[in-house]
């Protein structure tokens, strides 16, 4: 084939720019740390990366949700423990009246239990971040309050609802995070409430009637075990949250791994590539600089 100087120059220029282009691609991969900067660099892989990023984003949200739910759970747990110990205290006070003969003692017990009933309501009205924990979805309504009955003895009135509040802990997995007020307030399906039990105790004490003390103590025991069931429920949930959190953490690591595999530059590889492109580029520069000598004119001179 006939070769002209222009052909050689044109070819060399093309090769030069290709080598420089290659070198600049790998240097930008190294300095940006990313393999791809445009969708067309690898559309399918980039779509995967975007899905993974979205997945990691939602995982982060679930993780936050769980953290929030765990804190609420812890608060509810403390409150229920307090409710339980208050019930125990009421039972103890009531027990002392079994053996007491003095009417004053009855009155003192009644006053103390009245006080304790107040404590009970305070604990049941626990709130977390300005939301009452035991009032269903009406978290701005104080769930329990003490109202005097006709004879001035306290009754506890329940407000709010028993709707479940859900927490999303994974894709499509939503679990109830709240303990309903009713489940703490009543046992045996709602016929016996803390309100009636305490109202009966105080009314009987004020009437100097100690015939029902054993029944009352029995009822208090039932309430205690009912409240402890709530505690067990909370414990189980906490465990489930923590399990899920572990899963998310592992999953996020795996996603991160996969994302890095797709997106991130393999620095070692890129550097070796860069070095070889650089060498090729330098060699071609050297070759081009010799081209001028490649002419009959330079010999005839």
């Amino acid at each position: 084939m006939r070769i002209t100087q222009k052909m050689v120059m044109k070819n060399q220029t093309k090769l030069l720019s290709r080598n420089l282009n290659n070198a600049s691609k790998s240097i930008s991969q190294i300095s940006s740390g990313k393999k791809y900067t445009k969708i067309s660099d690898n559309p399918v892989e980039i779509a995967k990366a975007l899905s993974i990023k979205a997945k990691m984003g939602s995982n982060e949200v679930y993780d936050n949700n769980i953290k929030l739910a765990v804190s609420e759970n812890d608060t509810a747990e403390l409150a229920i423990l307090e409710v339980n110990s208050t019930l125990q205290r009421i039972r103890e006070v009531l027990s002392t009246t079994k053996v007491a003969e003095n009417v004053d003692t009855f009155e003192q017990a009644a006053v103390e239990i009245e006080q304790l009933a107040g404590n009970l309501v305070d604990h049941l009205n626990i709130s977390f971040a300005d939301n009452y924990l035991f009032s269903g979805t009406e978290t701005d309504t104080k769930p329990f309050s003490i109202v005097a009955d006709g004879s001035g003895n306290p009754t506890i009135v329940k407000a709010g609802n028993d709707d479940a509040i859900q927490v999303e802990i994974a894709d499509g997995v939503k679990i109830d995070k709240n303990i309903t007020g009713t489940s703490l307030f009543t046992y045996d399906g709602g016929t016996t409430t803390l309100s009636t039990t305490i109202n009966n105790i105080i009314t009987d004490l004020r009437n100097d009637d100690k015939s029902n003390v054993s029944t009352h103590i029995n009822q208090l025991n039932q309430h205690e075990s009912n409240v402890l069931t709530g505690l067990a429920k909370i414990g189980a949930r906490t465990e489930r949250y923590e399990n899920m959190q572990d899963t998310h953490t592992n999953f996020t690591f795996k996603l991160q791994d996969r994302l890095s595999e797709i997106e991130d530059t393999d620095i070692d590889k890129a550097y070796i590539e860069y070095t070889s492109y650089q060498m090729a580029y330098e060699a071609s520069i050297a070759a081009v600089s010799k081209l001028n000598e490649l002419s009959l004119l330079s010999i005839l001179r």
Binding site: I39, I46, L50, V61, Y62, N65, E168
Partner: peptide, 29 residues
């Protein structure tokens, strides 16, 4: 389109939907 980038539509959309998820879990905020 400026994808893949944190300021592009793809991230904006997933940020928005994730924000709804947060809101769902803390609706009174």
């Amino acid at each position: 389109l400026n994808e893949p980038s944190d300021s592009a539509l793809s991230s904006q959309m997933s940020n928005m939907l994730n924000e709804f998820s947060k809101l769902a879990n803390d609706p009174s905020s």
